[in-house]
Every structure is written in C-alpha cells, then in structure tokens.
Simulated scan of single mutants.
Amino acid sequence: MRQEHFIARHRQEWAAFEQWLDVRATRPRRARHDPHWRGLADADVPAAYRRLARQSGLARRRGYSPQLQARLQVLVQRGHDVLYRPPRPRWWRAVEFLLADFPRLVRAEAGVMTAAALLFVVPLVASFVALQSHPELINTLMTPEQIADLEAMYAKAAQKLGRDSGGDLQMFGFYVFNNISIGLRTYASGLLAGVGPVLVVAFNGVMVGMVAGHLQAVGLGEPFWRFVPAHSAFELTAIVIAGGAGLRLSLALLAPGRQRRVDALMVAGKRGAQLALGVLCMLLVAAFVEAFWSSIGWIPAAAKYGVGAVLWALVAAWLLAGGRDRDAA
C-alpha cells in the first residue's frame, strides 16, 4: 500500500486517539465521565492502541517517510505511558477528594447550602443582639451553674481559654467526639422530613449566638473573640454543610420528583455521605486547631485574629475554587 493511501485510510483514527490523549492529559476525570464527550470512548482505547502499534510497525517495515514513522511512534509512546503507568496510590484519591471533589459537591448543592447558612446565621445574629439588651435570656438556655462555668472558661487571666481543665491532647479527643457527634446528628436529622435539619441548624445558631452575646455583655468578649476565630473557620462551616446535606435528605423524602421516593433517598444519601465525609475531615482539623492553638491564652489578639482571617480565607477559597478546572472541562 502506498503511503498516501495508508495515511488516508487511518488519519481519522490517529486523530481520534491523539485527541483522547490530549483531553486525558489536561482533564482526566472529565474525559472519562462527561456525557457530552463525543471522542474516542475509554472502552475502545486499548483496541485503538493495539491497532496503532501495528500500524507503526507496518510504517517502519514498508519504509514510509521518517516524519510519518516519528508521528506514529510518538502516539504509541504516549499511549503506552497512559495505559501502562502504575495506578495512583489510594491516599492520593483521598487527597483528590478533599481538594477537588468535595468542594465541587458543596457548590453543586448551593441551594440547600444557602438555606442552611441562613438557618444558622440569622438565629446566631438575632440571639447575639437580643442578649445585649436582654441579658437574662441566657437563663432560658443555661442553668446558673453552667453560666458560671462558661464565664470561668473565658476569664481574662486564664492561661487556657475555652476550657476549665484538661491537657491539650485530652481536649483534642473531647473536641473530636463533640464536634463530630454534632455534625453527624445535624446530617442525620434530614431523615425527620425537613423539621430535623431546620431545628438542629437553627438551635446551633442560637447556642453560638447566646454564648457569644452573654460573654460580650458581661465584659468577657475579648478573650472569647481571641478563642474562636481560627477553629470556627472549619467548625462553623462544617455545621452549615452538614445542615445542607440534611436538607438534601429531607427534600428527597418530601419532594422526590419523578423518581420513586426510595430511589431519590438513595441518591441523596450517597451524596450526603460524601458531604459527611468531608465534614468529618473539617471537624478533625477544627478540633486540632481548637485544642492546640485557640486555647492558648497568652497569644496577643492581633495574632489570633490574623491567623483566623487567613484560615477563613483559605476555607472560602477551597470551597469556592476547589476543582474549578473540572467544572470548566
């Protein structure tokens, strides 16, 4: 077969394989899962690669031009590098999930996340403001003994803020258990058909707002505000995300659309489980920061606020920009 006939016969096949390699190199997962992709399918790639390897051998045996041989050899080598490279370690998949997949999933659920944020922030602000003019309202939430313990934890002379006893490692374990239990309850409340997540998220907002409002009203706002800014970036955001995941479960129960209710609940449960996994990681980070940084009483307020601002900015950038390259793919 003459070279020009050989090229004409296989040109489209080579172009399709090269296009698949290019897309795989720049947008690997999108190339595999985009329903609008019209190029070479993943299932057809091994057979296409074997044909390409045979065609490269034929080009050498028949003495076709060096340019054609070089082009085919490059495609064969690129295909070999993609198809036969070792798989990524499992830990890398976890990193990929946290850095890209989790933020994309949060953004995909923007509606319920916005609703959960409002359910949390509005009661928080309202209760904080209310405590400034009606400080006795704290008694509806706490007993006098609990109020006294709260004030002792934020005494201006305290070496460890936010706690009355316990070492850093001990408190880290306590914070992990406490934070994760709150996050999981918030998510699981979605099974209570809408009422659960609304009440749980709103109550958490009221609790935070009343604690902050009471401490501000009695003159202990400064140590409290030095305590909260760093770990709250992860903790409060995680509670909102857990609430959004719970709302998604509730919507699947109340408004499954054209799906059967059980099918809609399974889909929402799968997405919710992925969100809960990300929330778990965020709460672990929050517990670590709270135990080993936030509680230190002697660090100046400027340093505490600076670190808090940086962490809030990082969390916002992560959730808003993480995995954007895949969104655009």
Rank of each mutant, 00 (worst) to 15 (best):
L215C: 05
L99N: 11
G219H: 08
A317R: 07
V200K: 03
G306Q: 07
S189A: 15
N179Q: 03
L283V: 04
L184P: 03
A100K: 12
G243I: 04
L251N: 07
L277M: 12
A245W: 00
A25M: 08
V289S: 00
M142Q: 14
A268S: 03
F224C: 05
R185P: 07
D325F: 11
A108T: 10
A152H: 15
R50H: 13
L280E: 04
K270W: 13
W92P: 03
A117G: 13
R88C: 07
F172G: 02
E290N: 07
S294T: 05
A115R: 13
L141E: 00
F120G: 00
T140Y: 14
A110M: 11
V315R: 03
M210T: 09
V285R: 01
V129I: 13
V125T: 10
L249M: 10
L99C: 12
P86S: 09
K160N: 11
G190C: 06
R324G: 06
L283N: 03
V82G: 06
R88Y: 08
S65H: 06
K304V: 00
S250Y: 03
G63S: 09
P123W: 03
Q146I: 09
P28C: 11
A217L: 08
A94R: 11
I241F: 05
A242R: 02
L265C: 11
L311I: 06
V206L: 08
P28I: 05
L150D: 04
D168L: 10
R11E: 14
